[in-house]
Design a protein around this nucleic acid. Sequence first.
DNA 1: AAAGATTGAAGCATCAATCTTA
DNA 2: TAAGATTGATGCTTCAATCTTT
Lengths: 155, 155
Amino acid sequence: MCDDGGVSAKRLNQPELAGWVRLASVLELLPGALDVQLRRDAGLMHFEYFVLAMLSEAPERTLRMSELAAQTNSTSPRLSHVVKRLEDRGLVERFPCPDDARATNARLTAAGWRKVREADALTPEQVHQLAAIAEAILGRLDPDSTMSATYHRYD
Amino acid sequence: MCDDGGVSAKRLNQPELAGWVRLASVLELLPGALDVQLRRDAGLMHFEYFVLAMLSEAPERTLRMSELAAQTNSTSPRLSHVVKRLEDRGLVERFPCPDDARATNARLTAAGWRKVREADALTPEQVHQLAAIAEAILGRLDPDSTMSATYHRYD
DNA sequence: AAAGATTGAAGCATCAATCTTA
DNA sequence: TAAGATTGATGCTTCAATCTTT
């Protein structure tokens, strides 16, 4: 990557540069924009909703922390902090994993289940838009589909 | 299960839903991924680079804080904090605006100018990728091109 | 009162360090 | 030693409050 062509991030035409600047804007603004509605309507951040949604799909609505981290593309510390907060709010509960004393299981509570069902993450139009966008992005960014999150709630 | 379900963001086919989940992943991961390289190579976050880059294009490399906020799609408090930090690092300096005693001007220092030039924000491949992605996104998300950031450094 | 800008508090993410069990 | 998970510190963003000038 540092071969002598190195400095030449420069041989790009103006529309392309303008494009990446605009993308930078999107990346700055979109996550926050998506959080606003959920936050207002359900008191959840997007990532919190995602955690609850993944649990809601799991058998017994229960998942190991490590597995939950994988499904939400999260690091362990991040998930640990988030689940802690969700637990304080009574939406999730944690208990030692019977199979492996190192592991911890996270389980959706009744309140958590209710919360997920109430909280529609996005409006239909938003979902349609974003689904289309997603295809466009991921076709280029993740052609091998390594992004691991999956969702079958409405299958 | 919740078929007739409440707010009915529901009339969507499975690929669309899968799509938005994948997009959620991208939105979670992409900003961080873009920051890594800049952080390592230049000790700058993406947004900090953006601030410096916008200043580097401005006449006298100087901009009012309010104008700089507009060009970086930032809020006032956010910009204020960021510029404070950049000022502490000697990359930017602030001084009262001569024309309007309420306003503050931010100006790139010599060190700041060097920093911007050294710090290639992205590799050529990344820029190409992102430029393409940007078009895909913005065509749907921002058809009227209201995203205000602009960039002419390589015109 | 509105515009321009700053400040401090609160919340979330990231990173390194730590602890326990396999 | 490695895997699973948690904790605490640090840093950035957000929000409300504040201050000055128009």
